[in-house]
Structure formats: C-alpha cells, structure tokens
C-alpha cells in the first residue's frame, strides 16, 4: 500500500464517528405525587397564605378571579423554585436523612426532568402573573425565583453559615408580591410584612439545624451549628427572636392591622421569646433537642397565626363596614 493510500485510509478512519452506545431513555416510574413533591407543597402552603394576606390587606380592589389567578401564579412560581432547588441540591439531598426520600435522590425523577419542570413553571408563572396582575408583581416573582435558586441554592447555601439569613429573603417576598399584585406598588407596609418573615427565618431554620446538625455536617453544608457551634447558634436564635417579637407588632402600630392582631402579636411574640430563652439555656442533650424541636414547631404556628389574624381581622372589618 502506498503512503498516499495509507494516509487516505487513516484519514477515513479518523473521520468515522466513534461507535456510540445509544442509550434509550428509561421508562419513567414517576407518579403525579413525585412532581407535586418537587414543588415542596408545605413551603408552598406558607407562601400561598402569606401572599394572600399581603393581597387582602393591601388597599385597593383586585377582582376575585384575578386575585385567585395571581395567587396561583405566586404558588406555582414558589413551587418551581422548589423544583429547581431539588435539581441543584440532588447530591446533598441524597446524603441527608431528611431529604433522601425526595423524588430525585430516590431515583423516581431524573435531574433533567426536574430542571425542565422547574424552568417551565418559572417562566409560565412569571409571564402569567404579568398578564393577569401587573409587571411589578411579575418582576418581584421572577426575582424571588432567581434569589432562591441562584443566590441561595447555588451560592450561599454551600458557602456561608449566613446562608439562611440572606437566603431567607426569598421566602419573605410572597406578601410583598401579593401586595404588589393588588396595588401595583411596593409600600412601607409590604416591606414590614417582608421583614417579619425575613427575621422569622433564622430562628426557625436554626432550631431545625440544631436538631439536624449532624446531617448538615455530613452533607458539608456550613450551617451555623456546624461552623460556629451549638452555643453560638442558640445565642443567634435569641438575638433574632428579640428582633422578631417587636417587629411582629409593627403592623398594628402602623395602623394597617387592628387591636386583635396587636394583642396576638404581643402574646405570640412573648411566647416565641420565652421559647428562645429556653433554647438558649438548654444543653447538648435530648432535652435540648426537644426544646429546639418545640421552638421549630411553634415558629411555624406563630407565623401562620400572625398572618391568619391579620387576614381574618381585615375581612371582619370590611364586613362590619358593609353592615354599617
């Protein structure tokens, strides 16, 4: 064989595509409930509730159909950010006992399916909110999704013990979005509602982190108890509770919530503080874990109760206004 034909043969070999193992997509075993789980329904319920409160308390009138559609968009947007969070955090979710049964680590949904699901719902919910309510609310929803997925999940969560302090802003936006959907503006009142959830998040999450600190350490997440120790975490819970309790009363002081809310916020805040003191005084034993667990549970009740009273009181006042 001549040199020319040899090189031509070699060239032909090189240009041949390498044999590729064609893999067929495996038939999915994902059920509807797995896709619902990707939306983090428990987080979603809090988002819906706080957004509804922001929407109802806001001055101005939003048609019930538009209000419902707006709320649906906010809920779907929040769920989409949950799906994208699970897409990005699938590796650490597989390590932690609390999260290893989630659809991706359990192998029922693939990462790419979760990603597509999350992106589709994100874009759809933002566009629909813009068309149904206004583009300020849509912009805030888009920013919330961006903040939760990119700023919190991709950046802060694995890099700083202040992850949930700054990242908590994502969970605090819903009442502001609800308010913006109803009024087209961001006012001081909606910022106060934002701040209540913002300062509620650290004691809420750190109470959980105290119980699950070994889990977080195994997954390499720099939660405060892992990095600075449990004593420092208890101190920080106390500090944030001291900020939260008076902040909870501000809606009444500003006049956009009534006396019932004011009393509820004072009593609820006092109980929150008392539990934070108990946690601060507790040790690294089973009793200490129980106290932290109780504070975690109470914190959820506190936020729900605060927004429920705000909502119900407002509706009762409107009803009394009609009757009068």
């Amino acid at each position: 064989m001549s040199l020319l034909s040899q090189s031509a043969h070699l060239g032909a070999e090189l240009t041949q595509p390498a044999p590729v193992q064609l893999s067929r997509a495996e038939p999915s075993l994902a059920g509807v409930e797995d896709y619902l789980a990707l939306l983090k329904p428990r987080v979603m319920s809090l988002v819906i509730f706080t957004a509804l409160a922001g929407m109802v308390v806001a001055p101005g009138h939003l048609h019930p159909v538009l209000g419902f559609a707006s709320l649906l968009c906010i809920a779907i947007g929040a769920g989409a950010s949950g799906a994208l969070n699970m897409w990005y955090d699938a590796d650490i979710d597989a390590i932690m006992t609390r999260t290893r049964t989630r659809p991706i680590p359990a192998g029922r949904v693939t990462r790419s399916e979760a990603f597509s699901f999350g992106i589709t719902l994100s874009v759809g919910s933002v566009l629909l909110l813009g068309l149904v309510a206004n583009w300020l609310a849509a912009g805030l929803l888009a920013f919330t999704i961006f903040f939760y997925v990119v700023v919190y999940s991709m950046w802060l969560k694995r890099s700083t013990p202040q992850n949930i302090v700054i990242g908590g802003a994502a969970g605090a936006f819903p009442p502001m979005i609800g308010w913006a959907a109803a009024t087209g503006t961001v006012s001081l009142e909606s910022i106060v509602l934002f701040l209540i959830i913002f300062f509620w998040t650290p004691p809420h999450f750190w109470a959980l982190a105290l119980i699950k600190s070994e889990d977080y350490a195994r997954a390499g997440i720099p939660m405060l108890p892992v990095v600075s120790g449990r004593a420092e975490t208890r101190k920080q819970i106390m500090i944030y509770s001291l900020l939260l309790a008076p902040l909870g009363v501000v809606p009444w002081l500003m006049g956009f919530a009534g006396l019932t809310y004011g009393i509820s916020a004072i009593v609820g805040g006092a109980i929150f503080l008392a539990l934070a003191v108990q946690v601060a005084r507790s040790g690294d034993d089973a009793a200490g874990d129980r106290t932290a667990k109780f504070l975690f549970g109470y914190s959820i009740f506190y936020l729900f109760a605060l927004f429920a009273v705000l909502l119900i009181e407002n509706r009762v006042q409107v009803l009394l206004g009609y009757i009068a």
Binding site: P27, S28, L29, A30, G31, V32, Y35
Partner: peptide, 13 residues
C-alpha cells in the same frame, strides 16, 4: 414494552 406499574404511572401523569 412497559411493565404494568410503568403503564399505570404514565396514565396517571
């Protein structure tokens, strides 16, 4: 050929 379980879940989806 899908298994019965896969068929059921696909239908639910």
């Amino acid at each position: 050929v899908l298994t019965e379980e896969q068929r059921k879940r696909r239908r639910a989806r």
